[in-house]
Design a protein around this nucleic acid. Structure first.
Lengths: 341, 341
DNA sequence: CTGAAAGCGCTAACAG
DNA sequence: CTGTTAGCGCTTTCAG
């Protein structure tokens, strides 16, 4: 059995005063004499007293817990965002409960219900890939429970969001390819209902038009963000009668799968096909050739999301604010052709 | 403001019965008439009632929360173990609060204190790299709070642990190198006080002796598990007058850093130097050449750790049980020399 | 079969 | 300056 922890009552008894006196003393209430305060605090320190958060929670109706729902835990992007969230939460004395949806709409819903039952004070969410019905989120906002989205977002007019500048990033990649003499640029996108698919696709189209290139629908591929489906999309591209000479993908997973697939088919990056990804520093430089990629400020994204969350906690009636974070195209080996290999 | 959620009182008032009747009705107490039970449940369902966990927690002195402390969140190994823990926790109706120590002893201590204050029911911990004083853990066990270690462990006679078969794995790697005609086998280890450093080092030594190879102390390098320090260790190995022809590292980070460093110095894996890592499926196959590596059953490790945790919750007086999980050496390209490259 | 009351730990309003 | 009381939401005796 876990030993019962020390309570105000214990201290009050030991000191022969009432519980409320101890409570007040610990919080420096002006009505309590300085000596008594000192005595109370000394004993509390000695006994290692800390207020019971459940008693406080019951009283104040606050749990100091944030529910965080992410598509998965093991992708660097998400774990890094979570780190950012945790940093800010910690500063505010909040705890974070992370529930992975495994990209499943049902799990996402279920996680939200569980966390509601646990009385988290609010949510920070990245939509699962499957989610195209937003009823469960509308319920949250209707119950006036704080909610913030990051990366994959919806209901933008009701809910604060943090996103990357996907459109500009995709546009920049396309132009970068062009400047490095690619002319048959392909893009492997994700599920259509996700904002990130849409925006990156638009950026791709704008980029093509910036460069005076025509859009060929065969060069716009789709996948469900899984490695297998990204590999399949890559295969379809490689099997075209005129295959692309440059490919970029919507995220890390897709790009790594594409890279493997290109290598498997005996082609070389960047000589045969240039490749650019949306990845993090670490993974981009681990692969060979090192991957040119759009760097997300992931930790920052988490920090900003948490910031928006606490704005909402502190002032629930403020109108939702959206933040767009700048990404940066870091040029490495996979998109620049050199003579000697 | 968050709307107050429905309580037993609300239902009792609406039904014109007492609170205790509702409470009993919801739990199918035999004293309550079937019709009344039906009525109570119907209304509870309609109003979306769910018991207030803080009230329950206060009453039962249980928070249904597990504190999990990991060195960091963004390493695949840890996030994968956490996934496993979460799966089991969810089945049991528990929530997981993850607090990264960032490999810092002080943060680890601080996190534990915070989580104690939050009244988590117990802890699942992987030691920070810096931790060599275990006082804070002894306090936990003395307070009879459930505690389980995984991967990097201590206090094995008091605390249940889950570890990989590090010794055998390292021994197997060494022999694998030998069988592939490596004769100058190096190992990049981690901080000496960590059990994993020690065991893998012992396995390395045994492996050498299995193969009739002598141990050269220059081939046993150390690092602090950061990429930079692993890179430095690799450089030292490469700078030896007779550099190794095979290297393995204590974990992913180390191995990837070594791989980069080898490439940077113009050498090739596996032709000049063979390389084997402790990594996961995903990352091992993303790099080129694909990495031969010891696969950890990471998710399983999380599940087992959580299992031990719940054994402790259910029966605190059982003597600590240690589980050693089998790893598997998956042979890929980085350790097998072929003629045509 | 059902209700009233106590108590989990705490704060705050109300009395002295 | 300090104590008493009520109440946050719930379960569990104890009374009816």
């Amino acid at each position: 059995m876990v030993k019962r922890r020390i309570s105000l009552k214990d201290i009050a008894m030991e000191l022969g005063v009432s519980i409320s006196t101890v409570s007040r003393g610990l919080r420096d209430h002006p009505d309590i004499s300085a000596e008594l305060i000192a005595k109370i605090k000394a004993l509390a320190g000695l006994r290692n007293y800390s207020p019971n958060p459940m008693a406080m929670g019951l009283l104040k109706q606050r749990t100091k817990m944030i529910g965080v729902i992410v598509p998965d835990l093991v992708t660097h992007f998400f774990s890094s965002v979570i780190s950012g969230i945790e940093e800010v939460a910690k500063e505010k004395g909040y705890f974070v409960i992370v529930s992975p949806s495994n990209e499943s709409y049902l799990k996402e819903k279920e996680n939200i219900e569980n966390l509601m039952k646990a009385r988290v004070e609010g949510f920070i969410v990245c939509l699962s890939q499957q989610t195209s019905d937003y009823g469960h989120f509308e319920q949250i906002t209707e119950a006036e429970i704080p909610l913030v989205f990051f990366d994959r977002v919806c209901l933008k007019d009701q809910v604060p969001t943090v996103v990357a500048d996907s459109l500009e990033a995709a546009r920049g990649i396309t132009r970068h390819f062009y400047e490095n003499s690619a002319r048959r640029i392909a893009y492997i996108s994700g599920p259509e209902h996700l904002n990130i698919s849409d925006e990156r696709r638009l950026g791709y189209l704008q980029g093509l038009s910036d460069c005076g290139l025509e859009f060929y629908s065969q060069y716009l591929e789709n996948c469900d963000l899984s490695p297998d489906s990204a590999a399949a999309a890559t295969q379809r591209l490689l099997a075209l009668s005129i295959p692309p000479d440059a490919i970029f993908g919507i995220n890390d997973t897709v790009v790594f799968a594409a890279m493997k697939e290109i290598r498997r088919s005996g082609l070389h990056v960047p000589d045969d096909i240039m490749l650019v990804g949306f990845t993090d520093e670490f993974h981009a430089t681990v692969v060979h050739p090192m991957l040119t990629s759009v760097m997300h400020p992931t930790r920052e994204m988490g920090r900003v999301a948490a910031g928006l969350f606490f704005e909402l906690i502190e002032n629930p009636d403020v109108s939702p604010r959206s933040v767009e974070l700048k990404t940066k195209l870091v040029i490495r080996e996979s998109s620049v052709r050199v003579k000697a290999r």
